[in-house]
Design a protein around this nucleic acid. Structure first.
Length: 584
RNA sequence: GGUCCCGUGGUGCAGUUUGGAGUGCACGCCGGCCUGUCAAGCCGGAGGUCGCGGGUUCAAAUCCCGUCGGGACCGCCA
């Protein structure tokens, strides 16, 4: 997997590649002046940088260079004199001697230091305004190369599994569902508009009807929604769909692809991806995207306090988490802060208990709990001396949400740490509560297939219906989701009815897809993996902007180009568009 | 739409709580010295609309109001 050596007409080697084995070779290197140490008119050291690293070049004379000049250096590789090797540099045992330097391009001083320390410290908008400089630093070079490695590995995996890469249109049709769309005026049809696809969802289902039984695409998706550390207007997905498949087939295809990509980046292939049902994930971790890198699971305690006299625990659900060995670090102030946090998350309160040296509970509420309750509590939690125990009693959903978040607050390792813990979340519910009109709210898009065992519950108990939808989660981040789709019009009609979508409604919104399905739709299902988040985790980055060459700021601007900008009157007229005055 | 944090020479900070001369630190930049440095060193120098606007005050980087930009989050992202 060694990439080509980079030899060109202008250079013989790359800076970071030089080693003792090259000693004696006449070399030509090209790169940027990272640093220079000049000792008068007789000696100068130049640290020359390209994307492979830095090497020291020695000039026997004055070097009239400045930072970030682009230069070509010719000289002879030699071992460094006794005692002058630099173990901090991979190239530190050698240097290029007797250098002649040719300036290929002069450069103004960079607006911020071109290294990890300098760029990390700089205001991010400054980095983005000078992204072409920022990109030279090792971190972004590495991240974007990881990204390319992932893309290549995914393509290989999909090709190997018989998938066909097909591009779908960027100019698509508006659909009044889901994310807000970017709108493109149609010059040839004044008053009408295309939109940029929020995903290739409908297109790939049409491809299934069209007989491409294994489709994939590394697809750009666009959503005009507010930006976040893990969300940009435009993002990439490994999008796939296959016909005549079960859920198992789809999970298999995706597993193969993401494990291949992980191995390509890290050199190690994770074991088989484990699975949790949505129900178990919510009960044990309080979230549908559990971070399995650490324990502190939610422990069910409802039975323990079934007959309790303690008013606060007379609730539909009681759960607790055990934070091992930290009791000593939690004084009254911090615990009060934690209680505030729990209330802010929706709990009525938070009960904390410290486990003393003899296993006894130290807590303001201990006196309200019977000896038997305390004993069963300790046993169920497997509490050890020195542990801090946090308990919440409330409606089940509230308990899960609050403790799930506290678990993350107190235990979640940094993104750059720990093993890569993939997990499939399966058996999602079909609906997520009811809206103001009493209609069940679909948890996924309306073409998601019902779990085969639950089909008959659609009319009787819709909120109990599970779907054949599944998520892939990595270290607590949702990497992607997919489902088996409905391909039979009778089932689709029942699901629309359950959702409160009328036939006319459905026809208006998805008519072209439903129409196509009348011409012979195979059973099919698919998935989409969010690549920006995937790459960010593999690169150990919190923020997907660090794995995107030219990202936008939180307000959707690009400080480098100045986009978005007004366009000319003439352009507007051509598009039959008039800009309204801003509201007061 | 909302909550919170940040904005001071090119860069990163301190100064803001308790108003008193653009005060300080590190890096960078410019000039000089320097033949083994590697965050080179030593000497000297330049560089400021304290984001912007308004208000309070004898006096505002500092207090108040507004606004712009950046970031984190809620809403939103079927």
């Amino acid at each position: 997997m060694t990439p080509p050596d980079g030899t060109t007409a202008m250079r013989t080697h790359r800076c970071g590649d030089l080693r003792p084995e090259h000693v004696g070779e006449q070399v030509a290197l090209c790169g940027w002046v990272a640093r220079r140490r000049e000792h008068g008119e007789h000696l100068a050291f130049i640290d020359l940088r390209d994307h492979t690293g830095v090497v020291q070049c020695v000039v026997d004379g004055a070097a009239d260079l400045r930072s970030e000049y682009v230069v070509r250096v010719t000289g002879t590789v030699r071992e460094r004199p006794e005692g002058t090797a630099n173990p901090a540099l991979p190239t530190g045992e050698v240097e290029v001697g007797d250098c002649a330097v040719e300036v290929l391009a002069e450069a103004e001083p960079p607006p911020f230091p071109v290294d990890k320390v300098g760029a990390d410290a700089a205001e991010e908008s400054l980095r983005l305004r000078y992204r072409f400089v920022d990109l030279r630093q090792e971190r972004l070079q590495r991240n974007l190369r990881i990204r390319a490695t992932v893309n290549a590995a995914l393509r290989r995996a999909m090709d190997r599994q018989g998938f066909v890469e097909i591009e779908t249109p960027m100019l698509w049709t508006p659909t009044p569902e889901g994310a807000r769309e970017f709108v493109i005026p149609a010059r040839l049809q004044p008053g009408s508009f295309y939109v940029l696809p929020q995903s290739p969802q409908l297109a790939k289902q049409l491809l299934m009807v069209g007989g491409f039984d294994r489709y994939y695409q590394i697809a750009r998706c666009l959503r005009d929604e507010d930006l976040r550390a893990d969300r940009q207007f435009e993002f990439m997905q490994l999008d796939l769909e296959a016909s005549f498949v079960s859920q198992e087939d789809v999970l298999g295809f995706v597993t193969e692809a993401v494990l291949d990509a992980t191995e390509a980046v890290t050199g190690a292939r994770p074991g088989e991806i484990e699975r949790l049902t949505w129900h178990d994930a919510m009960e044990r971790f309080g979230v549908d995207k559990p971070d399995l890198r650490f324990g502190m699971e939610l422990v069910e305690l409802t039975d323990v306090f079934a007959g309790t006299g303690f008013r606060a625990f007379q609730a539909p659900c009681v759960k607790g988490i055990r934070v091992p060995g930290v009791a000593g670090e939690w004084g009254r102030n911090r615990l009060d802060g934690l209680t505030d946090r729990a209330k802010q998350l929706g709990a009525k309160g938070l009960v904390w208990m410290k486990v003393g040296a003899g296993g006894e509970f130290d807590s303001p509420v201990a006196k309200f709990l019977s000896g038997d309750e305390q004993q069963r509590l300790a046993a169920t939690l497997e509490a050890e001396p020195g542990d801090l125990v946090l308990l919440v009693a409330d409606e089940r959903r509230v308990v899960q949400e609050v403790l799930g978040q506290l678990r993350l607050d107190l235990g979640r390792p940094p993104v750059s740490e720990g093993p890569l813990r993939f997990v499939w979340i399966v058996d999602f519910p079909m609906f997520d509560g009811v809206d103001d009109d009493g209609n069940p709210i679909p948890a996924h898009h309306p073409f998601t297939m019902v779990h085969p065992d639950d089909l008959d519950l659609l009319e009787t108990d819709p909120l109990a219906v599970r779907s054949q939808a599944y998520d892939l989660v990595l270290n607590g981040s949702e990497l992607g989701s997919g489902s088996i789709r409905i391909h039979r019009s009778d089932v689709q009609a029942r699901v629309f009815r359950a959702m409160g979508i009328s036939e006319e409604d459905a026809e208006t919104r998805f008519g072209f897809l439903l129409g196509a399905f009348r011409y012979g739709a195979p059973p099919h299902g698919g998935f989409a993996v969010g690549l920006d988040r995937f790459v960010a985790i593999l690169a150990g980055e919190d923020n997907i902007r660090e794995v995107i060459a030219f990202p936008k700021t939180q307000s959707g601007a690009d400080p480098l180009t100045g986009a978005p900008k007004p366009i000319t009157e003439r352009q507007l007229r051509e598009l039959w568009i008039q800009v309204l005055p801003p509201p007061d």
